[in-house]
Amino acid sequence: DIIVVALYDYEAIHHEDLSFQKGDQMVVLEESGEWWKARSLATRKEGYIPSNYVARVDS
């Protein structure tokens, strides 16, 4: 799995977006363009995230 960590807070604009806080970790489910589908490890919610707001966690 690709794990990313939030670099900034993000408040969902559309209902399919995923809100998150700086430091939150998410599993990337699908990478396509600038918006990635991800699942929050904390809340288990899924939605689209702006890929420029996150960084990959080296395992």
Rank of each mutant, 00 (worst) to 15 (best):
K22R: 10
I13F: 09
A6G: 06
V4Y: 12
D9W: 04
Y53F: 11
A55L: 10
D17P: 02
Q21W: 08
F20S: 00
K22P: 03
H14R: 13
I3E: 03
T43S: 10
E11N: 11
M26D: 00
E11P: 06
W36A: 05
I3K: 05
W35E: 03
W35G: 04
E34P: 12
W35M: 10
W36H: 04
Q21K: 15
V54G: 01
R56L: 11
G47D: 00
E31W: 15
L41Y: 06
A38R: 00
E46M: 09
K22C: 09
V28H: 00
G47W: 03
E31D: 15
R56V: 11
M26R: 01
Y48Q: 07
M26W: 02
Y53N: 03
A12F: 02
V54F: 13
Y10T: 01
I2H: 12
D58W: 08
Y10E: 00
D58T: 13
Y48V: 06
Y48N: 09
R44M: 14
S19W: 04
K22T: 09
G33M: 04
Y8C: 15
H15K: 14
I49Y: 00
V27G: 02
E31T: 14
V54Y: 02
H14W: 10
P50Y: 08
H15E: 15
V5D: 01
E11L: 11
W36D: 01
Y8N: 06
P50C: 10
H15C: 13
K45P: 00
W36P: 03
V5C: 08
L7Y: 03
N52Q: 11
K37G: 02
G33N: 06
T43R: 04
F20P: 00
A42E: 11
R44I: 06
W36Y: 14
V57M: 11
D9M: 05
V4R: 02
W36M: 13
A6T: 02
R56K: 13
K45L: 12
D1I: 14
G23I: 00
V5Q: 07
A55K: 13
G33D: 06
V28G: 01
Y53G: 06
I3L: 12
S59D: 11
Q25L: 15
G33P: 05
I2Y: 15
A12N: 04
V54W: 02
I2Q: 10
D9I: 04
S40D: 08
V5S: 04
V4L: 05
F20V: 03
H15M: 13
T43H: 05
H15V: 14
S19A: 09
V57F: 09
G23E: 03
V54S: 00
S59A: 13
A55N: 07
G47H: 00
S51T: 06
S51P: 11
Y53S: 08
A55V: 14
A55E: 13
G23Q: 02
K22E: 07
A12L: 02
D58L: 11
L41C: 13
V57P: 07
K45F: 07
Y48T: 06
G47K: 01
K37R: 14
I49L: 04
L18F: 05
S32W: 12
E46W: 07
L41M: 10
Q25I: 15
S19P: 07
F20D: 00
G33S: 06
D17L: 09
G33C: 09
R39N: 02
E46Y: 07
A38M: 04
V28P: 01
H15N: 13
R44L: 15
L18S: 00
D24W: 04
L18M: 10
E16N: 14
Y48G: 03
F20C: 03
D9S: 10
G33L: 04
E34F: 15
E30V: 10
D24Y: 02
Y48P: 00
V28T: 03
I13M: 11
S51I: 08
G47V: 03
Q21H: 13
S19C: 06
Q25M: 15
D17F: 15
V57K: 08
T43K: 04
L7M: 08
H15A: 15
S40V: 08
A6I: 02
L41N: 05
I2L: 11
D24L: 02
W35V: 07
G23Y: 05
D58K: 10
Y53Q: 06
Y8D: 06
L18Q: 01
A6N: 00
